[in-house]
Simulated scan of single mutants.
Amino acid sequence: MPDYSLTRDRVETYFDRTATQTWERLTSHEKVSRIRETVRKGRDQMRALMLSRLPQDLRGARVLDAGCGTGAMASELALRGAQVTAVDISPQLIDIAKRRLHPALTTQVDFHAGDMSDPALGRFDFTLAMDSLIYYRDADIGRVIDNVANRTAQSIVFTVAPRTPFLMAFFTLGKLFPRSDRSPTMIPHDAARLARHCPGALTKVGRITSGFYISECLEHRT
């Protein structure tokens, strides 16, 4: 998967070298700009929406937090009683997540720096992937979902950037800049088209729009 590998390496470089401090602040309780505050609010709403698809009591369940970032989702899952495998392509973000995790939850969360589709991560009851697939093309997302679905017993809840006029304009504008001079660009997706690349049933859960944060939640069941 050459396209997937190139994008994955680009995402790793962005979050591990360019945007680590920005991302750390955005996902904290520190004061940020109005624009980033809308993004923070949108991410909080999306996290809650995704978690609503899982049982409130997750004792005995194994959950993959695919693209865990600074660890907010992993913490919420652990508070529900889940055993969480939290993986992110960025070792820097993994370090932040480890520092932020409440000491009482450390036995419930196993952090890994690496690829979310690595079979060595094991098998799970549920998989959550919040905004970690937004930079990939539909065929690559389909392959990742297929890979993870083979090791997920119940459902995969993930997000994509929807095909809205605003995001399509943003995506088109991003193409005008040399690839080496810009951060990874979100690729907007149509859920119906994406479903053709994902084996099993793909359902729209909901869309969150908060200022510059626009994300659509989908649920995959085999």
Rank of each mutant, 00 (worst) to 15 (best):
I96K: 01
R100A: 09
H189T: 03
L93E: 02
D131V: 10
P2S: 14
D118F: 06
T107M: 07
T172C: 01
L49P: 01
D65F: 03
L6W: 07
V157D: 02
D44A: 13
D131P: 06
V63M: 00
I156L: 09
V160D: 02
H220P: 00
R193P: 02
R25M: 11
F111K: 00
P188C: 02
T209V: 15
F171W: 14
R17F: 13
T106S: 12
A113I: 04
G67Q: 04
L176S: 07
T7V: 15
A61D: 03
G211C: 07
P188I: 08
L77P: 00
E12K: 13
M50F: 05
T209Q: 11
P199Y: 10
T159H: 08
F171L: 01
R179M: 04
R34D: 15
L176K: 05
L51K: 00
P91F: 04
I141V: 14
G200A: 05
G211R: 03
S52L: 08
D44V: 08
M73Q: 14
D190M: 02
S75R: 13
F158M: 06
R151K: 02
A19M: 10
S210F: 09
L173E: 14
R17D: 10
L128F: 09
F177V: 15
A48D: 13
G142K: 02
C68T: 15
G69E: 07
A86C: 07
E12I: 07
W23N: 10
D125R: 01
H102W: 09
L77E: 08
T159M: 05
R53L: 14
V205F: 04
M46W: 02
K98R: 14
T18L: 12
F212D: 12
N150E: 15
Q83A: 12
D88P: 06
A113D: 05
L218D: 03
L49A: 03
K31N: 08
Q154D: 10
V39D: 04
K31F: 08
